[in-house]
Simulated scan of single mutants.
Amino acid sequence: MEPLLLTDIEAAVRASWGADTTTPEYRDRWKPDNPARDQCGVTAMVLNDLLGGELIRGEVLVDGVRVDYHWWNRLGMGVEIDLTREQFDAHEIVSGGVVIERPQEIVRLREEYELLRARVLERLGARTRQEAA
């Protein structure tokens, strides 16, 4: 069986996003033509499950004012993975980036995280089962 590549994981994550995995209070602004919109927190947690590393949180600024937070991952040797950075419009600037300790229990966005995680694992499992056949 071939090992999973980062491209396999990325494809599984991107194919698993939907309106039902976004932040509920922003669900109405999710569109299929910008599927990464409001997926950063749950995506960072799923990647942390699969790859380890650190969770990074930056600020989303509009006209210099923080309007939200943005999450991504940092692996060993400072390699950063951000599968949702393209969600932002030109006037939305991601600033900073601090390491945030992973919560022991996921409370906020738990349903969305579990749904995304299950979809990604299913897609990755289907991929490895196809190669084994």
Rank of each mutant, 00 (worst) to 15 (best):
R66H: 12
Y26M: 10
E59G: 12
S95Y: 09
R29S: 13
M45A: 09
R74D: 04
F88P: 00
I56D: 08
Q39N: 13
D33T: 06
E111V: 15
D89C: 11
P32D: 11
R27Y: 04
M45S: 09
D38S: 14
G78Q: 06
L50V: 07
G58T: 00
R108G: 01
I106V: 10
L50E: 13
V42G: 13
E54T: 06
R29P: 00
V79W: 03
M77A: 03
Q104Y: 03
R102Y: 11
L61F: 10
N34M: 03
L47C: 07
V46T: 05
A36E: 14
A36V: 08
E114Y: 04
T43F: 03
G76Q: 02
L47P: 07
P35C: 09
L115M: 10
V67H: 06
W30I: 12
V46S: 09
G64E: 13
V62A: 11
Q104H: 06
R102T: 14
C40F: 07
I106Q: 01
V65F: 08
E54N: 14
H91W: 09
L55E: 05
D28I: 08
E86T: 13
N34D: 08
R37E: 06
A36G: 01
G52H: 05
L55H: 07
E111A: 15
Q87D: 06
Q104V: 05
V62L: 15
K31H: 13
A90K: 09
E112N: 01
F88D: 02
D28V: 08
E59W: 01
G78M: 06
W71I: 00
W71C: 00
V65D: 14
D28Q: 14
Q104W: 07
E54V: 00
D38W: 14
L55W: 02
V94D: 14
W71Y: 15
E112D: 00
G52D: 13
E114D: 14
V62D: 10
E54S: 15
W72D: 05
V98R: 11
L55F: 05
D33M: 01
D49G: 01
L115K: 09
L83N: 02
P32Q: 12
D28F: 07
N73M: 04
K31I: 09
P32M: 06
G76E: 05
E105F: 02
D68A: 15
H70F: 01
G41C: 09
K31E: 11
Q87L: 07
